[in-house]
Amino acid sequence: MSDYLIEARGLSKHFPIRDGLFGRSTGQVRAVDGVDLAIRPGTIFGLVGESGSGKTTVGRTLLGLQPKSAGEIRFRGRDLATLSKPELRALRPRLQLVFQDPYGSLNPRIPVGEAIGEALLEHGLSSRDELRERVLEVMAVCGLAPYHYGRYPHEFSGGQRQRVGIARALALQPDFIVADEPVSALDVSIQAQIINLFAELRERHGTTILFISHDLAVVEHLCDDIAVMYLGKIVETGPRDALFGQPRHPYTRALFSAVPVADPDARRERIVLQGEPPSPAAPPSGCRFHTRCPQASDRCRDEEPTMRPLDGTHRVACHFA
């Protein structure tokens, strides 16, 4: 048994770029390229990155919703690739996903009580008689009232819908939840409610969560361990305190300094990165960040840095860190 609930090693996901009349593959987008992750049970792991960094793809590949191109995923120490179809299906309810868009992720024609409970019935995790009880219980955990049971998604606000989405995942008592930008579509005051809900899930139910977000302030507040992604690769990872206390990768530092702080006097030293992230279909040679890096040298252009441990689990992929 390993110390980690879920581990990914060398995880890659390449999407072919199809072109022309016959859909010939003319290249590939390396959305995720050799990612190593290890998540301790009962913790929230933050995966941070900008759009196009591949963070969503990591989450979906971990859940087996997209086949991986290379690498291995271990759940409780077992390689998922070695599992049979029925074993995988039995595993399905243990691994859940919370979506970003609280509007598109609920079927408009299904009352929320049914949406939360249907998978319980399907997997034989609850009898028909106790179903309502079980659903109301998990709804209460997520801050939904019993009278919400028979209502339809369009009768809810965005924040409430997100609660329904979380309740739906939680009803199956999963070991692992991937939460893909679960608060970024919500208003600020509602975001705080949902963030607190995730913190409660960890503390009361010991749920392990991969929290994917572009919002560093939220990630710092909520997560125990953090990984920063840039163009399909993890550039720095480590425990929260190490990462936020001493960010070592220039990208991590720039990212941290770019977050606007709600304090007009906090004029910190700001690193404004030049230019835009390159396309993942044609990533730069060497270190993928060298085109925007303030410290880039010739070595960065030619040689790709490998992940080096700094202290404990804090690791960074930079020649100069």
Binding site: A192, Q193, A217
Partner: peptide, 24 residues
């Protein structure tokens, strides 16, 4: 005050955010 308190502040670690209860 609620708005200011409901955003996490970098460096200031709290167990819970002071969320504004309820809906608009």
């Amino acid at each position: 005050r609620g708005l200011l308190a409901s955003r996490p502040v970098p460096g200031r670690r709290l167990a819970r955010l002071a969320a504004i209860p309820g809906q608009v």
